[in-house]
């Protein structure tokens, strides 16, 4: 692979990482910690929303994030011909 293509592949990878990590930060540190008090004013079922994010919601989002990453990267690897098949 040429250096240019390699650069492009890598910067796309970094862009994906940035997007996913922003979401990661937002659900855990954002909704679960920093804004938890404000979100606690919203009630979902028997849960206060801030509490729910801190003890449940953030974890569900984490799982989804990894599988989105796997999907994106597999596609990217194929596009740039660096996959393992």
């Amino acid at each position: 692979m040429s250096d240019n293509r390699m650069q492009e592949y890598w910067s796309k990878n970094l862009r994906y990482l940035a997007i996913l990590l922003v979401v990661w930060f937002a659900v855990s540190y954002g909704c679960g910690i920093l804004f938890a008090d404000a979100l606690n004013n919203i009630q979902i079922g028997g849960f206060k929303l801030g509490f729910w994010f801190a003890q449940q919601g953030a974890i569900y989002v984490f799982v989804v994030l990894i599988f989105v990453y796997v999907r994106w990267m597999n596609k990217l690897d194929k596009e740039y011909g660096v996959d393992e098949d």
Binding site: L17, L20, L21, W24, S28, A58, I59, F62, L65, I66, Y69, V70
Partner: peptide, 9 residues
């Protein structure tokens, strides 16, 4: 759990 996101990515 959040550490796994860092680990995977």
């Amino acid at each position: 759990t959040g550490g796994y996101v860092l680990l995977a990515l």
